[in-house]
Design a protein around this nucleic acid. Structure first.
Length: 302
DNA sequence: CTACGAGGTGAATTTACTTCA
DNA sequence: GATGAAGTAAATTCACCTCGT
């Protein structure tokens, strides 16, 4: 499964209109760099928002300002990695004490550390064991990954957004987490990535729509102008070649007239080559200009 | 300063589906 | 082709957090 990321599809992944199982492909192929990753500040709590540059500045700012909480700070600074050898390093930050944060902060760090150590999700050795079973209560406890854990997970995710069992096992060991937790993190991470990508795609499509609407408006106006000219034959015959579109009757190729006025620079939207393109096309050589020929003919006659 | 509710975030769970042996 | 295991996306739940009042 992890080999899937070999086949990255470049460009925009339009997950909106995607049917069926294409979705799966898309998420696996979504280039990570579409959404720019951002390293958190030293004191910053590592959250999804903080790791991304969002278009929505307000939410970004909010997330940023929310910054870090004492919980993870305590975990990372005091308890988590103070022991490099990992002997007593409960890497996960579990807020296993119910109640307000201020109350918990009042307690000593040792308490937290002990709780975290004993409560790294799933008291049983089973990967899927129920929450922190020690209490006997069925309430599921909230795990908070430490800054370092999140960073490592992010780094790994940048390399491959899916893990094979070996990688999962190794990463879990490295992070002092259950493989299941790593798996869940990657699942959620992929979901968040896709969500963000969808938002980006949405923005892009919106802009495309606006561009096309504008283009349509412009072309309609041009059509109106041409119709008006056609109504007065005198003007019609003496007019310059039409501004944008010239059609060769034999090969049906549309081209931009080189003799046309300033608006001739506009793209010809009906050219087969660029019909589906939102980018203004390159002007192609004029195969035939019936308008020019016609006007010449008429002038010589009169 | 404290309490409280709203809303956001993210870990974990459930469900449904695909793929593969 | 039927079957079960494994993996994943999507939807959902729920604990916890921040912020405004």
């Amino acid at each position: 499964m992890a080999d899937k990321d070999d086949e990255f599809c470049l460009g925009l992944s339009l997950s909106l209109g995607c049917g069926d199982y294409q979705k799966k492909k898309i998420i696996n192929q979504t280039p990570i760099n579409v959404i720019q990753l951002q390293k958190p500040l030293p004191n910053q709590r590592v959250s999804f928002n903080n790791l991304f540059l969002f278009h929505d500045r307000s939410s970004e700012t909010r997330s940023f300002l929310r910054g870090f909480d004492g919980n993870s700070l305590r975990a990372s600074a005091a308890a988590v990695f103070e022991d490099e050898n990992g002997v007593s390093s409960p890497n996960s930050t579990v807020s296993s004490v119910s109640g307000k944060r201020s109350e918990r902060e009042g307690n000593g760090d040792e308490n937290d550390a002990v709780e975290r150590a004993s409560c790294s999700r799933g008291g049983s050795e089973d990967d899927d064991g129920g929450g922190c079973g020690g209490d006997g209560e069925s309430s599921r406890k909230k795990l908070r990954l430490s800054k370092e854990q999140s960073l490592l997970l992010e780094e790994t995710f940048k390399e491959h957004n899916t893990l094979n069992p070996k990688q999962k096992q190794a990463l879990a060991k490295q992070l002092n987490l259950k493989p299941r937790q790593v798996e869940v993190w990657f699942q959620n991470r992929r979901a968040r990535t896709k969500l963000k990508q969808t938002e980006v795609d949405c923005e892009y499509l919106k802009r495309c729509c606006e561009t096309l609407t504008e283009e349509n408006r412009r072309l309609q106006k041009e059509v109106q102008e041409l119709r008006a000219l056609k109504l007065s034959p005198q003007l019609y015959m003496q007019m310059n070649p039409p501004t944008t579109l010239t059609m060769c009757p034999s090969c049906e190729r549309v081209a931009v007239s080189s003799a046309s006025s300033s608006s001739a620079a506009a793209p010809s939207a009906s050219t087969p080559a660029n019909r589906n393109s939102l980018v203004p096309s390159v002007q192609r050589p004029v195969p035939v200009n019936p308008w020019a020929a016609m006007s010449l003919q008429n002038r010589s006659r009169s």
